[in-house]
Amino acid sequence: MSAELVIRTVEDGIATLTLNRPEKLNALTAASFEELRAHLDALAGEDVRCLILTGAGRSFCAGHDLEALAGGDALASRHAEAETIAQLEAFAAPVIGKVRGHCFTGGLELALACDILVAGENAQFGDTHSQWGLVPLWGMSVRLPERVGMARAKELSFTARRFSGVEAADMGLVNHAVPDEGLDEFVAHLAAQISANSSGSNRIYKSLYANSRALGRAEALRAETDMPFGMPGDALERLTRR
């Protein structure tokens, strides 16, 4: 029986999805996306307060498996893979991407769907599509400029250059770059901070932030005042807990 390509664990309301092809630097295939999507579907029915996405071994994800690419894997399943990344981005609870080692191309596209990114200082990022004569299919041309600005995104894509976790933090691609040996502890503390707060508030925040991207500024301001997503169910209990 083959090993799981994505491993799911849940503890104290914090779920972790781990890409699990360490011998291939967690390179992605259509099958990887099928498992990722199945796990996201399963977690949607659980009381998850925070989700962590990471990779097994020494890398987050080196991108799409090049052998699979040569065999037409990406073109055959590009819509399903793009939809899975969109599903990750729309996951109701806050999503933290924990990045060590390689985070290239398709792996970077996965990372960009996370709400918060934390990287080891020595992590290596890069959009290497142009190195291989490829083009993005999963949202890179939209999500990368949202993080770093259009001019910076163009430079990164045109040059396909690699850059460190420290550089990624400096340009705003990741929220934090921390010493590699402290990455697990830092992310665990961050996830605990998030999960200690109202899951209802955080879910509504995610919906409001998504609204603000889809609507004009004036309309988004008005929509927030109209409380389109209501109030968290635990508001009264938290207010009276003091």
Rank of each mutant, 00 (worst) to 15 (best):
M1N: 13
S2H: 13
L5V: 06
V6E: 04
V10N: 09
D12R: 14
G13H: 09
I14Y: 12
L17I: 11
T18R: 15
L19G: 05
K24T: 02
K24S: 13
L25R: 14
A27S: 15
T29G: 10
E35A: 15
A42W: 02
E46H: 02
I52Y: 05
I52P: 03
L53T: 01
T54W: 01
T54I: 00
G55E: 06
G55L: 06
A56F: 03
D65N: 13
L66Q: 13
G71F: 02
D73T: 10
A76G: 03
S77R: 12
A80P: 10
A82V: 02
T84V: 13
E89Q: 14
A90I: 05
A92M: 01
I96C: 07
V99S: 07
V99A: 11
H102M: 11
T105R: 01
T105W: 02
L112Y: 02
A113W: 05
I116S: 03
V118I: 15
A123K: 02
A123E: 01
Q124R: 11
F125E: 03
D127G: 05
Q131G: 00
G133I: 02
L134C: 00
V142F: 00
R143K: 07
L144T: 00
P145W: 03
V148M: 11
G149Y: 02
A151D: 13
L156H: 01
R161K: 10
R161Q: 11
G165Y: 08
A168Y: 12
M171Y: 06
M171F: 08
G172R: 11
H176W: 14
H176I: 12
D180Y: 07
E181C: 05
L183W: 13
D184I: 06
V187R: 10
A188G: 05
I194K: 15
S195K: 14
S195C: 14
N197W: 13
S198L: 11
N202R: 15
R203Q: 14
I204L: 13
I204A: 10
S207D: 09
A210C: 00
A210M: 04
R213F: 13
G216S: 11
R217S: 08
A218T: 08
L221N: 08
R222K: 15
R222E: 12
T225Y: 08
F229T: 08
G233R: 05
A235L: 11
E237M: 06
R238M: 05
R238C: 03
